[in-house]
Simulated assay, not measured.
Amino acid sequence: MRHARTPRAPFVALAGSVDALDRRYRAQRLSPPVGRCLHGSRVLIMAGHALMPPARTPDARTGACLSVSNVAGESYTAFQRSLATGNVMPRHYAVSVPNAATSELCLTFRVAGPAVTLSEEAKAPVESCPQLVLARDWLGSGIVDRVLIGAIRVGASPSDETRCALVLADRDTTDRMCAAEALSPAARDAVSFLAGLAEASGLSEARGT
């Protein structure tokens, strides 16, 4: 028997140090983020909780497509620190793997549909925002019913600002976002561009996150 999850909101944007976001997260009495994962993953998981509850069973009708930037410094720093302390963790190694954050998000919310990570700073025009274009293709072909479309810019450490935008989109939502490109304000990076598209599309944002 499939247990459908009810979305809480279609869109959320977060910005701040991980420590500050953790305090806000715990104040809402949500489940704590996955322990010992990179801080970029923790911010994505916080954003995910604002949009939907974790599924009870693997959800093959939900996919994920995100762009991730500034991960290399975080991975390298964590790896060097683990070597120095003798507590080497498999996730922390010198060569950055940007899809680690997407994987953590999918594992937490049991997203079992297609999942793709892009490491480029894509923004306007819409054709240059590949996560949105790819999500629209998946939805149009019927592979999935909804896609987590996101962008995250990871700070160098948990005390630095990390910013992300995450949209839980169905086919109608992606069409609206593509049509709203002309209304979206100028953006300096992929996070700002995606958040601007969501706002210009009239998507309601999760509050109190």
Rank of each mutant, 00 (worst) to 15 (best):
M1Y: 08
H3L: 05
T6L: 13
T6S: 12
R8A: 07
F11V: 04
A13Y: 08
A13N: 07
L14D: 01
S17H: 06
V18P: 01
D19I: 14
D19N: 13
D19S: 14
L21T: 13
D22M: 10
Y25D: 01
Y25G: 00
R26N: 09
R26L: 14
A27V: 09
A27M: 11
Q28W: 07
R29K: 08
R29P: 01
P32V: 10
P33T: 15
V34K: 10
V34Y: 08
R36A: 09
L38F: 02
S41N: 13
R42N: 02
V43Q: 02
V43T: 05
I45V: 14
M46K: 04
A47F: 03
M52T: 15
M52R: 14
P54S: 12
A55V: 05
R56G: 04
T57S: 11
T57F: 12
P58Y: 00
D59M: 07
A60E: 02
R61F: 01
R61P: 00
T62F: 11
C65R: 04
C65T: 07
L66F: 15
S67Q: 15
S67D: 10
S67A: 14
S67E: 14
V68N: 07
V68P: 01
V68W: 03
S69L: 06
G73H: 06
E74A: 09
T77D: 12
T77P: 01
Q80D: 08
R81D: 13
A84K: 12
G86P: 04
N87Y: 15
P90W: 15
P90L: 15
H92G: 00
A94K: 12
V95E: 13
P98R: 11
A101K: 08
A101S: 14
C106A: 09
R110M: 05
R110K: 09
R110S: 05
V111M: 06
A112D: 01
G113M: 03
P114E: 10
P114A: 13
A115M: 08
V116I: 08
A124K: 15
E127F: 11
S128D: 10
C129D: 09
C129W: 13
P130E: 10
P130F: 11
L132F: 14
L134W: 12
A135T: 05
A135Y: 06
A135Q: 04
R136P: 06
R136N: 14
L139V: 05
V144D: 01
D145F: 02
V147I: 12
G150H: 05
G150A: 06
A151W: 02
I152A: 03
R153L: 09
R153H: 11
V154E: 01
V154D: 01
G155C: 00
P158G: 06
P158T: 08
S159G: 15
S159T: 15
S159R: 15
D160R: 05
E161N: 04
T162K: 03
T162H: 05
R163N: 00
R163K: 02
L166N: 01
V167S: 08
A169W: 00
D170Y: 00
R171F: 05
T173Y: 00
R176Y: 00
M177Y: 03
C178N: 09
A179Q: 00
A179E: 00
E181G: 12
A182V: 10
A182Y: 10
A186S: 10
R188H: 10
A190P: 02
L194C: 08
L194H: 06
G196H: 07
L197M: 07
E199S: 14
G202W: 08
S204W: 06
E205S: 02
T209Q: 02
